[in-house]
Computed example of a mutant assay.
Amino acid sequence: MRKYLGLILLVTPAAAPAQSIAPGRWDIVSTAVDLVIPGAPGFLLKMMKGRSKTEHKCVTPVSAETGVAALLVPDPKAQCRVDHVQIAGGRYAQTLTCPQKKGGPMQITRAGTYTANGFTGRLKMAGQAPKGPLAITIDQSASHVAGACRK
């Protein structure tokens, strides 16, 4: 718990008070917009384009006080490093560096708008695949779905 709270505090701007969000269950829907993955079959890339994946997050009451920053915290399993984050005035921008199993790290940028009801934005990933440079663009939106988290 302390580890997660520490990470949240790292990405929360100190200059402005956070606009808190509702605690509980949140869904973050990521939809593939554009995929450039060298070596991947074209039909597979066409199938993936437009597909969505939903990530479920449980935001504690303490984390909810940090606002949208609680939703932008990367999954600890990904072992991403937050390089920069700016959250103010209804807009957010974030850059991350995430390791890959093979090859150099993946560079990720996120930007968009937020309110107390969630966020909408675009995520861009760039890195090196075994057969060349890859680039993935994803649209994301977050919304509150329930007042209590499942146990």
Rank of each mutant, 00 (worst) to 15 (best):
K3A: 08
K3G: 06
L5G: 12
G6T: 09
L10S: 13
L10W: 10
T12P: 01
T12I: 09
P13D: 14
P13Q: 10
A14S: 14
P17Q: 12
P17E: 13
A18P: 00
A18T: 02
Q19P: 00
S20H: 11
A22R: 13
G24T: 04
R25T: 05
R25M: 04
D27S: 08
D27P: 00
D27I: 00
A32L: 12
A32S: 09
A32Y: 09
V36K: 13
V36Q: 14
P38E: 04
P41R: 10
P41K: 10
G42R: 09
M47K: 14
G50P: 05
S52D: 06
T54W: 00
T54I: 02
T54C: 01
E55S: 14
H56I: 15
C58R: 07
V59F: 02
T60A: 06
P61C: 02
V62K: 12
A64H: 03
T66K: 14
A70I: 03
L72W: 05
D75W: 07
A78S: 07
V82T: 10
H84S: 11
Q86N: 12
Q86P: 00
Q86F: 13
I87P: 08
A88C: 03
R91S: 10
Q94L: 12
T95Q: 08
L96H: 04
T97Y: 03
C98H: 03
C98Q: 05
P99C: 07
P99K: 08
G103K: 04
G103D: 02
G103W: 03
P105G: 03
P105S: 13
P105R: 12
M106D: 09
Q107G: 10
T109A: 15
T113S: 07
T115L: 10
T115K: 15
A116G: 14
N117M: 01
G118T: 01
M125L: 15
A126N: 12
K131W: 10
D139K: 04
D139Y: 06
D139I: 00
Q140A: 02
S141D: 04
H144Q: 05
V145D: 01
A146V: 00
G147D: 06
R150T: 11
